[in-house]
Amino acid sequence: MNAPAVLTVSPETGVLSAVADFVEGALRDGGVAEDIVFCVHLAVDEACTNIISYSRARSLSVSIQVCMEDVTVIITDDGIAFDPLTAKPPDILGNDINNRQPGGLGVYLIRKSVDEVTYARREGKNVLRMVKRRR
């Protein structure tokens, strides 16, 4: 098992590109298939966007471990306690676009993009753990 790759940044919108490059680089270095790279990148992007937008964190770190069977991503921030898994899912069945509320779409995409997602509040930090199976 390889050691996890870790990126720590100051949470602001400008770092999302660096986060994307880090995630894609770590996964491609680990030989992960492109469709899995797309899904994990999307989940990390949505989670980090929420942290940057709402958490008032001073530090954000993304850890990626590529194993034979799966990829594990742990996102940690020191912002206000927020469990994204409690966000109300969007009304994806609503066909009337005027009745669709876009809020919650990011968290919904996280849930759909990875196989497991768990949240914990530990030592004053939000810890979001996501696992994506490689097949």
Partner: peptide
């Protein structure tokens, strides 16, 4: 690539 931010743009234009 498209994220929820991109989907929102398309939805806003459609509305």
């Amino acid at each position: 690539y498209i994220s929820s931010a991109g989907l929102r743009v398309l939805l806003a234009a459609k509305k």
